[in-house]
Design a binder for these strands. Structure first.
Lengths: 341, 341
DNA sequence: TTGAAAGCGGTACCAG
DNA sequence: CTGGTACCGCTTTCAA
């Protein structure tokens, strides 16, 4: 069933039928009703490819996600995607998802732009030395960054959470509780978000004329075993930390495992604060959640990001947009006063 | 840069240029070289929409994933998607991902089919009373099921793991170790995979003339808290289980947390076997992994699924295809002989 | 071996 | 308010 056939069935021109279906004002109400009714009855829907070709708009947004060695970003990417996807569906946009090895992301973006597969694209997980935005600017395709690229905060569009201040606040809480040896289990610090978190951690120390001990700071892919083995190693030190600040719930679960494996109790013997991305399968909720955390929903970020990007694509003024999401600090069972030495 | 411009730049017809680029044999080697070289230099790539319209093939596969109340499927869906996506990229297919509320999946599939957005689609997470395949058959679009729909094992294409026998084997292992009160923490049993796992669990008991105690069987979304609270509740019973068989690593982590919260030791006081989907962010590896498990990589399933589906779309005989993935049983730290009563 | 031209299924401009 | 028609950019048949 295509437009031509539908028009014939209605004894109308393709033009009129098309106009009726697309809500043009110059069609009589009566004709419109008849057209819509018949279209529904015959199950007609315009062929996407044809419409795209004719309009020049693909009504699709592209996401290129790298499957790097750093697999740990995946659950976060994916949760973000789920949020964005819902928004796209609501606005009639398609999401085209490209999953490629790190080395091919540039090529993947280029394909999308030059073959006109999408009207805009999203950048995930920016690194300190990221160059994807340059490719995209050269290709003249609108894009939005989930995160920020250092030095390009003002002229590129992005959505991000307050990584630095969230970690500063969390560190403050621990310092307020009397902890003086605090370990940081961070993500890989060539990622912008991790670099910011570390700076926030150090800032909190600096404000009290303390310096964070480098021996207590680690960075790695945010797996569960990373949390467990790091916690064991650090607690084995002659001067072990009394608290941990962790970049991911998954890693925090590892830390909590190590703590109980040593016969200690989290929140009493060792305090833990984690960042909680509010991943749907790892709820850390209730009136007093397991982990004290800084929480910011990645899924919500995805939803908002999609809206922002759709806005950029609309025939609009396109000044860069920025959206800054504030993580909340939530007190759970995992923190308490530093034990007396 | 479009075909016309490229043809002009080369002083050739669009026809010849198109043929040269698409590897048709009737083009002279010399012209082909020249065309390819110039295309590369000018950064030409054919517009996808136009090509799709002309060929009638969209070179895309659709995935519709429901964001249900049962969020817990997400990490599994997403890992599968990541696997499939890589395959698509390799074969030059696009993946179009639609994320909608449960109630709209039918409509979403219909949209894809009738607007010709994709050449084929994937069905995720089949339920016992699933009807998606009927819609798709009516729409005459090829599809593949990740999992099986009861009663339709022979005439529909699917890829699945051996849920039943994997859980039967796991239960056997526990019974061999002397456990007689074994708890099952299953996913929601209106999902086909969970129903099969339960039957496998019961079968293992039946083979020894035992019956599994219904009081020890639970089903729910596979969260971490579900594991922890269930384990606590069950271990509080007058006759507590000595072993747990769990449907997901995430839930198993909850179980392990409950065990240590009670001052017990997993693998000595309480045994645990979990199914391990080999999610990238939850590695359970090493020469002796934390959890004894049945393991089957969902990501690999995604890769294979994509290949099978692409095969179906190719101009080919299209008998239904089935692929049966065998989970391996891997012994970790979490299992041991049943404690003396 | 190359080219002209007719689609593919829509949208949108220009007349009437 | 309705219809004719020229594209959109590519593939593919038919001729040369």
């Amino acid at each position: 069933m295509n437009l031509k056939q539908l028009a014939e069935a209605l004894s109308l021109s393709q033009t009129t039928v098309s106009r009726a279906l697309n809500g043009y004002p110059e069609v009589s109400e009566e004709t419109r009703k008849r057209v819509e009714e018949t279209a529904r009855r015959l199950g007609y829907a315009p062929n996407s490819q044809a419409r795209r070709l004719a309009t020049g708009r693909s009504m699709a947004i592209g996401h290129v996600i790298p499957v790097s060695l750093h697999e740990m970003m995946n659950p976060v990417f994916m949760e973000f995607i789920a949020g964005a996807g819902q928004t796209y569906a609501r606005f009639g946009y398609d999401m085209i998802l490209t999953v490629v090895p790190d080395a091919q992301v540039g090529a993947a973006y280029r394909e999308i732009a030059v073959r006109k597969k999408a009207d805009a694209v999203m950048i995930h997980g920016p690194r300190l030395d990221d160059h994807r935005h340059e490719i995209l600017q050269e290709l003249k395709i609108p894009f939005l960054i989930h995160g920020r690229i250092p030095g390009r905060e003002n002229d590129l569009s992005w959505i991000d959470m307050n990584n630095g201040s969230a970690f500063e606040t969390a560190t403050d809480l621990l310092l307020d509780l009397g902890h003086r040896r605090i370990a940081l289990l961070n993500g890989l610090e060539d990622m912008d978000f991790a670099a910011r978190r570390r700076r926030g951690f150090e800032r909190a120390h600096a404000h009290r004329n303390l310096t964070a001990d480098p021996a207590l700071m680690r960075q790695a892919d945010m797996t569960e075993p990373y949390g467990a083995s790091s916690a064991h190693a650090l607690l084995d030190l002659p001067e072990p930390p009394t608290a941990f600040l962790v970049s991911s719930m998954i890693t925090a679960i590892g830390v909590s495992r190590a703590i109980s494996e040593r016969g200690l109790k989290m929140g009493r013997d060792v305090s833990v604060i984690t960042h909680d991305d509010a991943l749907s399968f790892l709820p850390n909720t209730g009136d007093k959640p397991i982990f004290t955390c800084t929480r910011s929903s990645v899924r919500y970020a995805g939803e908002r990001a999609a809206e922002l990007l759709i806005d950029q694509v609309m025939p609009h003024p396109d000044k860069p947009v920025h959206e800054y999401l504030k993580a909340e600090l939530i007190i759970g069972h995992s923190t308490g006063p530093a034990p007396k030495a």
